[in-house]
Design a protein around this nucleic acid. Structure first.
Lengths: 187, 187
DNA sequence: CTGTGCATGTAACATGTTACATGATTCA
DNA sequence: TGAATCATGTAACATGTTACATGCACAG
């Protein structure tokens, strides 16, 4: 009993990245390269790391037999390892999914800049917030395009995309409020 | 030429935390303890670190003469150092505020869980998303309360709080979409 | 007189980035 | 033939967390 108990006790505090990778592999077998792209594009608003963190994590997951790999020649490019989830991995992923998450961590420097906007001439502040707005507008359009090709048959990807849409719309609405308030302020 | 050029070249890539602290001190002179609280409460959706990162950063800022400290007896509690921003610090902060920010980094495990919700029995998934919604509802109420005591005379804090309100409302709206879609799905 | 909040600090550890390194394939 | 993309990997570094450590002051 002792051994397996210990394993289950430590299971919950495992690195989030490993679970993210498990989720990515579960949703579709992928290579390390593809997983990196997936995180940076589709999962942009979920979790994203550089490839240098991905490959070691994959090797650990494989060592623990939560995933298995298959060498395949690249369609265009060199050979790569395609990972797929094992029964043990699926079990672990399910247990993780069943747990609640802490509130998402946010690191948004732009908010701090807005907090200090009275340091800037009005025109500079206005230009900045408009540029930020444009950036989020572009991101919104990306999510809207993804949304349009998804159906309720893929509820997971659809809901993740919906989150992107709603989040970007909220950010844009906030930018508009910021712009309005700056415009009203005496210079 | 060489020396000051180098200093200005490296200036832009300084640690974000230092700028966050400068912003916090600029908005109001504070102690390390108060800055930590400020980040975790008011700045919850901006930038937040533990106190163990704050004190060393403050000492570096003081060493660079961007802030200065004053020892004061605590109103109730031990003596503390109250930091205020210097002219050099204000200059640096202004330069930072004038720059644009990269898009905010988000680490939201919950999205990945929803991506894999088909692994869970419907009731478990429903319970989870409702609990997440309640958490964000509570956070929304916190921001709404802050908003109600702020006026346009403090545009900075007001806009930061507005961001909190809009962000939480968007998250709650998303939770509702998730709940709806799960409820519709065959079990 | 004990717990809670105020207040500061250090050290070991975890996690992730940047930069360095390599090499294949495809397209212009 | 040179740039772009695919594909994987390592090592040094940056940043932040957890845990450990200390001590005052006030309330119950």
């Amino acid at each position: 009993m002792g051994v397996s108990d210990q394993k289950e006790a430590t299971a919950s505090k495992e690195k989030p990245l490993k679970h993210v990778l498990l989720a990515g592999i579960y949703s579709q077998p992928r290579s390390g390269y593809e997983l990196t792209k997936w995180m940076q594009v589709a999962g942009q608003h979920c979790w994203s790391v550089e490839h240098s963190s991905v490959y070691p994590a994959l090797r650990e997951l494989e060592k623990d037999e939560l995933i298995k790999s298959e060498r395949l020649p690249g369609t265009r490019g060199p050979e790569r390892s395609i990972y797929s989830i094992t029964a043990a991995g699926l079990e672990k992923l399910t247990a993780w999914v069943a747990n609640g998450s802490p509130r998402p961590a946010i690191k948004d420097e732009q908010l701090l800049r807005v907090l200090c906007f009275d340091l800037l001439p009005r025109e500079v502040a206005l230009a900045q917030i408009r540029s930020v707005r444009a950036d989020h507008q572009a991101q919104l359009e990306f999510f809207l395009e993804r949304q349009s090709v998804l159906t309720e048959h893929q509820p997971g990807p659809l809901l993740v995309t919906r989150r992107g849409v709603l989040a970007e719309q909220a950010y844009i609405a906030w930018c508009d409020e910021v712009e309005e308030m700056i415009a009203r302020r005496p210079d």
